[in-house]
């Protein structure tokens, strides 16, 4: 058993890491680094889970760490990276509704809102060590930040990463608020993988052929004429 205070401060640092990665995902234009940052975020989550294990000692947390590591640090990023190779998109330049600065400000505002909302909804959770409460706030904020990614970025791949970020948020939230049975966590991960694969296939499918659909696709902003098909 490590010193609880040390662990708590480690966890706080990791929270900061999570937020920063999320902020990066919201604001970057570089697609290739996006996946790596997502993997980093997931890895941070694994770290948090492990740290939490040292405090709470619940075996579930170990399982979560393991599954998360396998799926979100290894499989999914690898898969998305492969897809990106296939469709040869490197950058996601345009922003919809929100530009990076606005979204960063907005995410801070959201964190405040969530903090206030949660503190009034869950008096008994806020009564716990502040770490747990803060974890819940960070988790929920991460969900909303991921959501911001889904609608402010135009490429489907980026949207998928936004979705994955949301999912990370849910995981974080779940870890700090309560202890879910492991089977559920596991099933969710499977679901996530299927979803990502499906979305990716669809994205590739939409990528595959025929010039004449370009106009229509343009609307969907999967890619633009400038970065051409192989």
């Amino acid at each position: 058993m490590m010193d609880a205070a040390l662990v708590e401060s480690i966890i706080r640092i990791l929270f900061a890491g999570v937020i920063i990665t999320a902020a990066y995902i919201i604001s970057t234009r570089n697609l290739l680094s996006l996946v790596s940052v997502y993997a980093l975020q997931s890895a941070t989550l694994v770290g948090i889970a492990l740290c939490l294990y040292t405090i709470e000692g619940a075996v579930v947390l170990l399982g979560i760490a393991l599954v998360t590591f396998a799926s979100k640090v290894l499989i999914i990023p690898y898969f998305i990276a492969t897809i990106q190779e296939r469709i040869r998109i490197k950058r996601d330049i345009e922003f919809h509704y929100l530009n990076p600065t606005t979204s960063l400000f907005l995410s801070m505002a959201l964190m405040l809102v969530i903090y206030m909302a949660l503190s009034s909804i869950m008096p008994n959770v806020s009564g716990k060590p502040t770490l747990f409460f803060f974890g819940a706030v960070v988790g929920l904020s991460l969900v909303l930040m991921g959501m911001m990614v889904t609608f402010s970025r135009k490429r489907a791949i980026t949207k998928v990463l936004g979705y994955l970020t949301m999912e990370n948020g849910v995981l974080l939230f779940g870890m700090f608020v309560t202890e879910l049975p492991f089977i559920i966590e596991f099933l969710i991960v499977i679901d996530l993988i299927i979803l990502v694969i499906l979305t990716a296939i669809l994205t590739v499918g939409i990528d595959s052929t025929l010039e004449e659909y370009h106009n229509r696709l343009h609307r969907f902003y999967l890619w633009e004429g400038t970065e051409d098909v192989p």
């Binding site: 919809h96 509704y97 959201l110 809102v113 969530i114 909302a117 929920l140 909303l144 959501m147 911001m148 889904t150 609608f151 402010s152 135009k154 949207k159 969907f220």
Partner: peptide, 17 residues
């Protein structure tokens, strides 16, 4: 799609508030 997701986002924030 982005617009639709924006609706969802706004509603979610509204519900949280």
């Amino acid at each position: 799609l982005d617009t639709y997701l924006l609706y969802v986002f706004v509603t979610v924030v509204a519900i949280i508030v």
